[in-house]
Structures are given as C-alpha cells and as structure tokens.
Measured scan of single mutants.
Amino acid sequence: MATVKFKYKGEEKEVDISKIKKVWRVGKMISFTYDEGGGKTGRGAVSEKDAPKELLQMLEKQ
C-alpha cells in the first residue's frame, strides 16, 4: 500500500493511505485527516505535486 510523507509542526511523518479518512483541497495543497490509533485523529497536508496518485484519486472520488 502507498504511504504519504509530510511534515506536521516541524516533524517528519508518514502515514499509510488506508488510514486516511477525509481528503480536501486547500489552494495547491491537499489536506487530510487520518486515524492515529487509540481513538485519535491526526492531520496532515502535502503539496499537490508531492501527493501520491492514490491520495489524488481519493480526492476525485469525493
């Protein structure tokens, strides 16, 4: 499965596409929420050019 690499609050993070719950576009950025486990929801964003094609496909399906 594909992963998304991004920075959040200065920390490098990587999340599996299957854990992503919601995806939306903000200008040229793709924002998303994902399941961190333990009932927590994380947030992240990547630029449109750095987003994996699976993430862009999720955006188109909504």
Rank of each mutant, 00 (worst) to 15 (best):
V23N: 02
Y8Q: 05
K13A: 03
E60F: 07
T3E: 01
K61L: 11
W24H: 13
G10W: 01
V26C: 15
A51M: 06
P52Q: 04
R25P: 14
K28P: 13
V26I: 08
K19A: 12
G10I: 01
L59Y: 10
R25Y: 10
D35W: 08
G37I: 08
S18A: 05
L59Q: 14
G10L: 02
V4K: 00
Y8L: 03
K21T: 13
K53E: 15
R25A: 15
A45K: 07
M1G: 15
D16L: 09
G38Q: 14
K19Y: 12
R43T: 14
K7F: 10
P52W: 01
S18F: 07
S18M: 04
T3S: 04
K49C: 15
V46L: 05
G42L: 12
K5M: 02
K9E: 09
M58E: 12
K21C: 15
K13S: 02
S31I: 06
S31E: 15
Y8V: 11
K22G: 14
I17K: 02
V4A: 01
K9V: 02
A51P: 09
P52G: 05
V23H: 03
F32K: 00
I20G: 00
G27S: 13
M1A: 08
G37Q: 10
K40S: 15
M1K: 10
K7Y: 13
G42T: 04
S31W: 08
W24I: 11
V4L: 03
D16G: 08
T41H: 14
T33M: 07
R43K: 12
L56S: 05
G37W: 08
D50P: 03
E36A: 10
K13V: 05
T3R: 06
L55M: 06
P52T: 06
K22E: 14
G10Y: 01
G38V: 13
V46A: 04
D16S: 07
T33F: 12
V23W: 06
V4Y: 00
Y34H: 07
W24C: 15
K9H: 12
R25F: 09
W24A: 14
G27A: 06
A51D: 02
T3G: 02
K19L: 09
F32W: 01
K7V: 13
I17A: 03
M29H: 13
E54P: 04
F6Q: 01
K13P: 00
D16M: 09
L56H: 12
F6L: 02
K5G: 01
E48S: 07
K28N: 10
G37E: 07
D16P: 08
R25T: 11
E48A: 08
V23I: 11
K9C: 15
E14C: 07
M1L: 04
E60N: 15
G27K: 14
Y8M: 03
D35G: 05
E48R: 04
G38D: 06
S47F: 05
S47T: 05
K40G: 14
E11A: 09
P52S: 03
G42W: 04
A2Q: 11
E36S: 04
K5I: 03
L55G: 00
K22V: 13
A51T: 11
K22N: 15
F6P: 02
R43Q: 11
T3D: 01
L55Q: 01
G39A: 11
T3W: 01
E36M: 09
I30V: 09
G44R: 00
R25V: 12
G44E: 01
D50C: 13
V26N: 15
E36F: 06
A45D: 15
I17E: 02
I20Y: 00
E36R: 04
F32T: 00
E12F: 09
E54F: 11
K61P: 12
K19P: 01
K28W: 04
D16F: 09
V23T: 15
G10C: 06
G38P: 11
K13F: 08
I30G: 00
R43A: 07
G39S: 10
L56T: 12
K40F: 12
R43P: 07
G39R: 10
K28V: 13
I20W: 01
A45C: 13
A45N: 09
E11G: 07
G27C: 14
K61S: 09
Y34M: 01
E36I: 04
E14G: 01
E60T: 05
K53S: 15
L55C: 02
K61A: 12
M58Y: 12
K13H: 04
A45H: 11
W24Q: 12
K7I: 12
Y8N: 04
K5R: 05
Y34G: 00
K9Y: 14
P52A: 04
K5N: 02
V15M: 02
Q62N: 05
K7S: 10
Y8C: 15
V15H: 01
A51L: 09
I17L: 11
T3Q: 03
K53R: 04
F6E: 01
T3F: 03
M29L: 09
V4G: 00
F6R: 00
V26W: 04
A2R: 06
M1H: 12
A2T: 14
E36Y: 04
A51C: 06
R25N: 13
T41I: 12
E54L: 07
V4S: 00
R25G: 14
S18Q: 08
I30C: 06
K19T: 09
I30E: 00
Q57A: 12
L56Q: 09
V26Y: 12
K13W: 02
S47N: 11
Y8S: 04
K21G: 10
M1D: 07
